[in-house]
């Protein structure tokens, strides 16, 4: 009986936790297929009465429309609501976000993987210092880095250019990526590294043929982490981008909320679109996050 009580308690606790975590997402998704009137109805409809994809259509049509104070009320026939004046920047900003995030993921891996291998497996002077030094850069809050970053970016003429975001996001994500990977590489036995070299691998080949395949779970974690960080970043993007040419999704979506009038249906549909790429990534990579891949390397 004691076991049953315990199970009931655990079940209730986890159910509460799930509701807490998922309710906002559920509302986001649900309201993205509701009309403006239904969203603002009280009590809220968790299940839409008349589900509609018109909000999404509005987003993709907004590309051609120019919205001004005068024309905003013309609104969107589909939603019956307002569409924000920056609505047509949304789709281009998604591309910007995607380009930035993918570039950061790729460049981050190119730098972090060899760096982590060197720090984990090659003994050189200043090895542990370099790890700590790198990590301390991440103790500084981003807000304190904005000004130096800004000056740097301006000096290089990268303001309002996607390059500014790629560079600064790399500065933010590489230390953590290296840290995660160093921890993982260090957990792999040194003798694996030695075996590979005796088998005829150079350092680089050892990394690519032995360590990278073994580090797949950590690499996936790093990829997800860098992608999400770049995809969601707001503060730096707000500082360095000024026009739709380089604005990323969070900036454009945020601008919807500071418009003449707020269109919840439109914002929610945009929010759902913003969630899609990270979710897709997680689904694709989930199968690589397998544990126990290293079992059997050593005696035991």
């Amino acid at each position: 009986m004691k076991g049953l009580g315990r199970n009931v308690l655990l079940f209730t606790a986890s159910a509460l936790f799930l509701v807490y975590v998922l309710a906002p997402v559920a509302w986001l998704v649900s309201s993205s297929v509701q009309q403006e009137a239904e969203i603002t109805s009280r009590p809220p409809h968790w299940i839409p009465r008349q589900p509609t994809l018109e909000n999404f259509e509005a987003i993709f049509q907004a590309k051609e429309k120019k919205v001004t104070y005068e024309t905003r009320r013309a609104g969107d026939p589909a939603t019956g609501g307002y569409i924000p004046s920056t609505a047509r920047d949304l789709v281009p900003s998604m591309w910007n976000s995607l380009i930035v995030a993918v570039s950061v993921v790729v460049l981050n891996l190119l730098v972090a993987v060899p760096a982590a291998y060197a720090m984990a497996k090659i003994r050189y002077i200043g090895r542990s210092t370099s790890i700590y030094f790198m990590l301390t850069t991440r103790v500084i809050p981003d807000i304190a880095l904005v000004v130096p970053f800004f000056l740097f970016i301006r000096t290089f003429g990268l303001l309002d250019h996607l390059g500014s975001l790629v560079i600064t996001y790399l500065a933010i994500t590489i230390p953590f990526s290296v840290f995660i990977l160093v921890g993982y590489f260090e957990s792999l036995p040194d003798e694996l590294d030695k075996a590979a070299r005796v088998d005829g691998c150079s350092r680089l080949q050892t990394l690519l043929r032995v360590y990278v395949p073994l580090a797949m779970p950590s690499l996936v974690a790093v990829v997800l982490f860098t992608f999400l960080t770049s995809w969601n970043e707001f503060l730096l993007a707000l500082m360095f981008t000024q026009t739709p040419a380089s604005q990323t999704m969070p900036i454009v979506v945020a601008s919807f909320a500071s418009d003449f009038t707020i269109s919840f249906s439109f914002i929610n549909a945009a929010g759902v679109l913003a969630v899609v790429p990270p979710v897709l990534m997680a689904v694709v990579f989930e199968r690589y996050i397998v544990s126990g891949l290293t079992a059997g390397a050593v005696k035991g």
Binding site: P189, E191, L192, K194, A195, A196, R197, V198, D199, G200, C201, S202, Q205, V210, P213, L214, L293, T294, A295, G296, A297, V298, K299, G300
Partner: peptide, 28 residues
């Protein structure tokens, strides 16, 4: 090391966990 023509058996066997036995032996 990779340019020296020696083979080594390690104290902890250090087999490549992600490779089959065949691949482990064939790798060198």
């Amino acid at each position: 090391a990779h340019k020296r023509d020696v083979a080594m058996v390690f104290q902890s066997y250090a087999l490549y966990p992600h490779k089959s036995v065949y691949e482990n032996i064939a790798f060198g």
